[in-house]
């Protein structure tokens, strides 16, 4: 517990961060920036786990461990996504959504 800081304040920060990430995901065109927006969303969720763990259920380190696993999974995701992006770049020399939209709707 951080003296003087209530749970709801932390949750507000994490929620705002999550939705900033959503905004980025929706408006960005560059694949790498979309990926970065995803990271913001994931971190928002991670803060939630930690805050709940610390403030409400300190008996077990559950939330903390979940955040740890989350970080590992996020690393996997980014690594794979970047491999694909670089492969894509080798094909078309661009990483923007528009240029990556040859599949017709």
């Amino acid at each position: 517990m951080i003296p003087g800081v209530s749970l709801i304040e932390i949750l507000t920060v994490s929620t705002l961060m999550f939705f900033i990430g959503v905004y980025g995901f929706l408006t960005r065109k560059n694949l790498i920036t979309i990926l970065m927006s995803l990271e913001l969303m994931l971190n928002g969720a991670a803060i939630n786990f930690v805050a709940f763990n610390k403030y409400l259920y300190p008996g077990q380190p559950n939330g903390q461990l979940f955040a740890l696993f989350l970080i590992a999974v996020a690393a996997c995701e980014v690594a794979l996504a970047i491999a694909i992006v670089i492969n894509l770049y080798r094909k078309i020399k661009a990483v923007d959504v528009e240029q990556v939209n040859t599949l017709k709707h």
Partner: peptide, 15 residues
Amino acid sequence: EAGIKFILTAGLASA
């Protein structure tokens, strides 16, 4: 292209 679309949506889904 399919790969990148899939992994980005998957990322969104997992977030």
